[in-house]
């Protein structure tokens, strides 16, 4: 039973102890929130929505349900992929795998429901918006599911084929991120939208290969051919440098001869500089998970710069 005391020293200790408990509880809650955001791919949802908003901003499109749809689809596909690969991920990401296994039922319901709502929202955007919304899910079935190999010996999971795997992921997301706002706005495809598409395509490819460095052992065990598995980490780093430098050149050319504005080119180039720095850390950091998150977070930098440089916002 607790007892009251008028001893000032004891009172101070009690307060300090309570403060300690509160801060410990806060730290515990923050850690749990961080786990949920990280392991369930919820942070990717936020970044994907920022990417779509970036497209809205760059192409001057009216706001639409597109960011929400892309966010829901992102959550559904990535969390669904983690559910499917929970067992094989136990080697490379044991904590994430344990989280997914523990919450498999809830995640399964949430991911299915999220895609269902995304489809229903996309219908409001018309047949093209619906088709684009279905694309990541369809690509995921071709990419990761074990359904494709059941069609015959010649077929195997596209996830296992070098470059094709990352190219598919990049294509699906680039089409969704750029195409969905266009479809909702019933806008036509312009040269500027083409430039934005190429940027997201190459950038997503790079961001897909960064976590593959961490997963190199698990991927090799699973028969998945990625750049780090086939060429090694050093050459992968060089390849990522090359892709980022290609984008730098591409942005420079489109700035000189194409539709890119200085503000937009500047924001993208800052982002690419950030990406080149991150590429240097590939295979040289003890926190590969954070590196992957940092790679995705580049879009926040670009979006913030664009917001700052856009008059009237």
């Amino acid at each position: 039973m607790a007892s009251k005391t008028n001893d000032p020293a004891a009172h101070a200790d009690d307060v300090a102890s309570r403060r300690g408990e509160v801060s410990a509880s806060l730290a515990h809650a923050c850690a749990r929130i961080k786990d949920v955001l990280t392991y369930s791919s919820a942070y990717l949802v936020f970044i994907a929505m920022i990417e779509v908003l970036t497209v809205h901003l760059v192409l001057s499109l009216p706001l639409s349900p597109a960011p929400v749809v892309v966010g829901l689809v992102t959550f559904s596909v990535y969390a669904g992929d983690r559910i499917a690969d929970a067992d094989s991920d136990a080697l490379s990401t044991p904590e994430r795998s344990a989280f997914v296994t523990r919450h498999r039922e809830a995640l399964s319901l949430l991911t299915a429901g999220a895609y269902g709502v995304a489809i229903a929202l996309a219908i409001a955007g018309g047949p093209l918006a619906l088709a684009i919304t279905l694309l990541p899910g369809g690509f995921w079935i071709l990419y990761a599911s074990d359904w494709f190999p059941t069609l015959g010996r010649r077929f195997k999971r596209l996830k296992q084929i070098l470059v094709v795997n990352s190219a598919m992921v990049a294509s699906a997301w680039a089409i969704a991120v750029v195409g969905l706002p266009l479809a909702f706005a019933e806008a036509t495809v312009t040269p500027l939208s083409g430039v934005v598409f190429v940027y997201f395509l190459v950038d997503t490819f790079v961001n897909t290969e960064i976590p593959n460095v961490r997963d190199v052992e698990a991927d090799a065990a699973d028969g998945v051919s990625t750049l780090p598995v086939v060429f090694g980490i050093r050459r992968t780093r060089h390849a990522l440098y090359g892709l980022d430098l290609f984008l730098v050149a591409f942005v420079g050319l489109t700035l000189a001869f194409g539709p890119l504005t200085v503000a937009l080119a500047g924001a993208i180039l800052v982002g690419l500089g950030y990406a080149l720095v991150l590429a240097w850390f590939v295979g040289r950091t003890n926190a590969p998970g954070r590196l992957a998150i940092a790679g995705e977070s580049k879009h926040l930098v670009v979006f913030a710069l664009l917001l700052a440089s856009t008059p009237g916002i």
Partner: peptide, 18 residues
């Protein structure tokens, strides 16, 4: 719209039960 959301969500769940 609701029937599409529920139907497609349930289809995904059923797909995972294969």
């Amino acid at each position: 719209f609701g029937s599409v959301a529920i139907g497609s969500g349930a289809a995904i769940l059923a797909w995972r039960e294969r």
